[in-house]
């Protein structure tokens, strides 16, 4: 493999992993608080759509990003209300939201841009980190839009909050033993509401990265399972932050490989590479790779 190919491979691994990193970090916080957010896919799709619409209407990708967050918040509120207040089944509500958002964004996009339009919209440009991006081979790693750096900062902040703060203990305990949290005087429902809203914002950023960060256009159903893949990363990461981050990078690399291998003349079926993240996660859950320890109260409604 030549240095140039490695450089392209590293660059595209990061580019493909960033949306997953945003969404998976958000999902991790929800799941540690005891809520499975199956609506992650729908949240990302809405983020991608609203980001594209906002950027196209205002001409500013910054306002697009704001639109993405604003548009995903109502979804997070619906998800939070249904699961924490109405105690609805979390799997059902998630899938319902995903179906609804796929319909809404497809309809909305056709109304605004016409069928099959692939109009380019204003987006963020890659930002070359001074000095670092001139490095040989690993230079492209540092040619990312600033959102990628924001993602890194958020991940570090989440690591700190989860491990070292009282809030982090409340979040983790809400997913392990919510009754104990309630007895200690903290509000489990509030913690879970907050976790879901945080997940929504993160999913919005991840979705917006896809549309206005990466390819500068929107296509119908463009997340194409990225939200589910982010949930898979959390599972494969065994509900630990850094392992989840590693899983996202691994999944990004697997996806990047399918564009690289043909160039190298390596014949591996595409499908096998795309399947790899799911297969790895399946083996992990099946207990063939280490032991899985999900939060004990995961997906269980809380009764005060």
């Amino acid at each position: 493999m030549t240095a140039e190919l490695i450089a392209v491979f590293l660059g595209s691994t990061i580019r493909l992993a960033v949306p997953l990193l945003f969404a998976a970090t958000g999902e991790l916080v929800s799941e540690r608080a005891g809520v499975v957010n199956m609506s992650l896919e729908g949240m990302m799709l809405m983020g991608a759509f609203a980001g594209a619409v906002g950027a196209a209407l205002t001409g500013s990708p910054m306002l697009g990003l704001a639109a993405a967050i604003l548009a995903v918040l109502p979804i997070a509120f619906v998800q939070a209300g249904l699961t924490n207040v109405l105690r609805a089944n979390q799997i059902v509500t998630g899938i319902g939201i995903n179906i609804l958002v796929l319909g809404l964004t497809t309809l909305g996009y056709r109304q605004m841009f016409g069928e099959r339009s692939r109009a380019t919209i204003p987006g963020f440009d890659a930002w070359s980190t001074p000095l670092l991006s001139n490095l040989p081979v690993i230079g492209p790693l540092f040619q990312q839009i600033w959102l990628a750096w924001l993602g890194l900062a958020i991940i570090c902040a989440v690591a700190y909050v989860l491990a070292c703060t009282g809030l982090g203990i409340s979040i983790r305990a809400a997913g392990e033993d919510p009754q104990a949290v309630a007895k200690s005087g903290a509000n489990v429902t509030a913690v879970r509401h907050g976790a879901i809203i945080f997940t929504g914002v993160m999913a919005a950023l991840g979705g917006a990265f896809l549309s206005i960060g990466d390819i500068h256009t929107f296509t119908e159903g463009m997340t194409n399972g990225a939200g589910y893949l982010a949930i898979v990363a959390v599972i494969f990461g065994n509900w630990r932050l850094w392992r989840t981050v590693f899983a996202c990078l691994l999944f990004g690399a697997a996806t990047a490989l399918q564009f690289q291998l043909p160039a190298l003349g390596v014949q591996i079926p595409n499908a096998l590479l795309i399947m790899m993240p799911y297969l790895l996660a399946f083996l992990a859950v099946a207990g063939l790779v280490g032991r899985q320890t999900a939060p004990r109260a995961l997906a269980q409604p809380f009764w005060p």
């Binding site: 105690r87 509500t93 939201i97 958002v101 796929l102 309809l107």
Partner: peptide, 23 residues
Amino acid sequence: VPSALVGILQGLIVLMIAGAAYY
């Protein structure tokens, strides 16, 4: 009328029924 509209209706039906199930 894009058939995506049907998806919107299905999603709404799912959310309404799931949300009210407990009550």
